[in-house]
Amino acid sequence: MKYRILISLVTLLLCACSAPVDSAPSAKERGSLSTQMVNLSSAVDTYFADLSKVPTDSDATILQMATRHDKRLLAPEFELYVLKVQYQNPYAVLLLCSKDGKWAIMEDAGCSARLDRQIIHRAPCEFTLRVRQGCQVEGADPQ
């Protein structure tokens, strides 16, 4: 009996450790989200480029303003997740996280058509990319 409880506990522990991130996208969803993310980060980057001062609006307002010319950029696929925006004078970085806001899924600066950081394993929902002068992105996945 004691062994059975021990085995159950070990099994539970193993399951918990190898569990996928809650509401993590499937490979198919990730493919679609990646393309949408690259387009959206470029739109936010363009919006920031025209600002005369540091934005103080909420992330939701920034996203709405940046996509005012084409609402399709804020694709419905994003509604299942949390989207965060960071202003890195004057560049934009976007971070997509699980709906509960705990886990990062992908992160992208608006500098290129490349998705800068795909997060497959558990990582906290925190910005890690740093955009330097000339839109040089630090911290991106290796090419």
Partner: peptide
């Protein structure tokens, strides 16, 4: 691979941009 957009099988880049 350079674009880092996930699995090649599920790439929707061209259709997404055409749809836009």
């Amino acid at each position: 691979k350079k674009l880092n957009l996930g699995a090649l099988e599920f790439n929707r880049q061209i259709s997404t941009n055409v749809t836009n």
